[in-house]
């Protein structure tokens, strides 16, 4: 079954999402740890200020992105809400954990605890919309965003749903940046050119997916799959493309999850597509557990606009823009594939 993308929104570190022209500004924690920060909208214009007052940044970003996405799709009430998050509302978890240790378990505020659960955002969106439909949240490392989308696809086919709101969010906080650098996941090296995606990032991206084709849709998700890396790249791609009756030569562009110009993790894939454009995205959003939602948003925008921003190219081979294949290694074990077309 094909899914159509009816509406999108992304709150990301990149400015001017319609035509991104430069990489985001790099911010620092403790004057040394580089990272990206989302450019956030004016929330008061989107969310009831009375509710806004106790929301963390992740909640504001996630909820605002969801509401803006529904507006973009011209949908007031989705049939279901499914979210994905790597670390959830980490600011609230960090706050409650710190408080509980510092105060020796006494006089703790309930709000950070309540909002630390991973389903906070999906249920808050439902609460704001009074949406009683299906509601779920996938969490943790791995293909959580892809699984949320898979769930949406099953729901649409099982229950005849028309509009499912699917999204992902992850916020970055100072303590987490410190830990990520200490773990050696990011290098604090000034020699390396700043124009790289290998920095901690964050973002919220939402989509309204539907089984119905329409002129106003952004793009079509012809197929997507989460595959185990035990199989060779060549076999993964050939099986996936055969299933979708398309040849390697007909793939206009591939978008890969590399995080720097020197990242060799994807050469086994890029080598398979000598005539396709190669695009990347992590230099525009940073590295985080649900960055593939940003990739999907960027790719469908490119297809809708019939144009790819220059900054997204690693290699330009053709001027066609009818389809994009996203290839993203979500963990060492799993690779996610999305075949999109306009």
């Amino acid at each position: 079954m094909e899914l159509y993308i009816k509406g999108i929104n992304s709150i990301s570190p990149s400015e001017n999402f319609d035509n991104i022209s430069h990489i985001p500004e790099i911010k620092l924690v403790d004057e040394i740890y580089k990272h990206y920060v989302c450019i956030e909208p004016i929330y008061k214009e989107i969310i009831n200020p009375l509710l806004l007052r106790r929301m963390s940044r992740a909640m504001k970003m996630g909820i605002a992105s969801a509401l803006l996405c529904l507006k973009d799709a011209k949908i007031e009430m989705p049939d279901a809400i499914i979210t994905a998050t790597g670390l959830g509302c980490i600011e609230d978890s960090d706050k409650f954990l710190t408080l509980l240790i510092e105060n020796e378990e006494k006089m703790l505020n309930p709000t950070p605890f309540i909002q630390s659960t991973h389903n906070t955002i999906s249920s808050q969106i439902a609460l704001l919309l009074k949406c009683h439909g299906y509601n779920s949240t996938y969490a943790g490392r791995g293909a959580c965003f892809e699984t949320a989308l898979l769930d949406a696809k099953m729901l649409i086919s099982d229950d005849d749903l028309q509009n499912v709101l699917v999204g992902a969010y992850d916020e970055l906080i100072a303590n987490q940046i410190r830990i990520l650098y200490r773990l050696g996941l990011f290098k604090n090296n000034n020699k390396i050119n700043d124009n790289q995606g290998n920095l901690p990032g964050e973002g919220a991206s939402f989509f309204v997916v539907s089984p119905n084709p329409s002129e106003t849709n952004y793009a079509k998700i012809s197929d997507f799959e989460i595959v185990n890396n035990l199989i060779s790249a060549k076999k993964i791609i050939s099986d996936f493309l055969v299933k979708n009756s398309i040849t390697i030569g007909n793939i206009n562009s591939i978008m890969v999850g590399i995080n720097s110009c020197f990242d060799t993790h994807y050469t086994e894939y890029t080598d398979l597509f000598p005539n396709s454009n190669i695009l990347w995205f992590k230099h525009l959003c940073g590295e985080y557990m649900t960055s593939s939602a940003f990739a999907l948003c960027l790719a469908v925008k490119c297809l809708k606009n019939y144009s790819i921003p220059e900054i997204a190219f690693i290699r330009k081979n053709n001027n066609k823009n009818n389809n994009i294949l996203i290839i993203n290694k979500v963990t060492n074990e799993q690779t996610a594939l999305f075949l999109l077309s306009n």
Binding site: H118, N119, A139, G140, G142, M289, T331
Partner: peptide, 25 residues
């Protein structure tokens, strides 16, 4: 992260198949 226990358990039972983690309180 919530996915860690899923991965560790999957590794323990030597599973190669699809895994997912749900967290809805």
């Amino acid at each position: 992260d919530c996915g860690e226990s899923t991965k560790k358990i999957a590794d323990k039972i030597k599973l190669n198949g699809f895994t997912a983690t749900i967290s809805t309180a």
